[in-house]
């Protein structure tokens, strides 16, 4: 019987990581599901749904040669693989400002309390080492409605984060 694993992997970015890892999986008769892979601060990171009949030990063994060769760190977690059940986001929030500790914690705490269920968050540090800025995009479900999120953000900006730029836009999906 086949089952799902979440493969998480990180290593110094170099050319060919995706090709070599997925080729090893393919040759081991694994099937791939959804994935998120990106370079973060010079590291290549991978989160990949893998479906196979192998045990977790056998899967690890299958990947070992590539992991060793490319000096990667690998972690496998058995998961329930839910495909074909995408939840569509209702709202998109963009945040940017001078980088400092606490932006993510404060913004997401306020949003969580106002009912936001985050589906997707990506953030970057831009600017220069001397004057870094932080930029973050969040998509999610407004479980208490968008107005509640708007009010909470407004409150945050007026009381705690006057320099932060925060924009909120409902995501309207047109189905045709």
């Amino acid at each position: 019987m086949s089952h799902w694993f979440m493969l998480t992997l990180v290593g110094k970015d170099q050319q060919g990581i995706v090709a070599q890892v997925t080729t090893a999986l393919y040759e081991g008769k694994c099937n791939l599901g959804e994935a998120s892979m990106l370079r973060l601060g010079g590291n290549f990171t991978m989160m990949l749904m893998v479906n196979c009949t192998l045990s977790i030990e056998a899967l690890e063994q299958l990947l070992q040669p590539v992991i060793t060769k490319l000096q990667l760190h690998l972690h496998l977690t058995p998961i329930e693989g839910q495909l074909h059940h995408h939840i569509e986001p209702e709202v998109r929030i963009s945040v940017h400002g001078a980088d400092r500790a606490g932006i993510v914690a404060q913004v997401t705490s306020v949003l969580a309390e106002a009912g936001l269920n985050i589906l997707d968050l990506e953030s970057d540090v831009g600017g220069s080492a001397k004057e870094p800025f932080y930029i973050m995009h969040i998509e999610g479900i407004a479980t208490l409605g968008i107005k509640v999120l708007e009010d909470a953000l407004q409150q945050l900006l007026t009381t705690q984060q006057p320099d932060l730029k925060v924009q909120l836009e409902p995501i309207e999906i047109l189905v045709m």
Binding site: S94, E150, K165, Q167, E169
Partner: peptide, 13 residues
């Protein structure tokens, strides 16, 4: 891209 796209959004403050 879902990520690096340009949305015209409501701006606060």
């Amino acid at each position: 891209s879902r990520r690096h796209d340009l949305f015209k959004r409501k701006v606060y403050k």
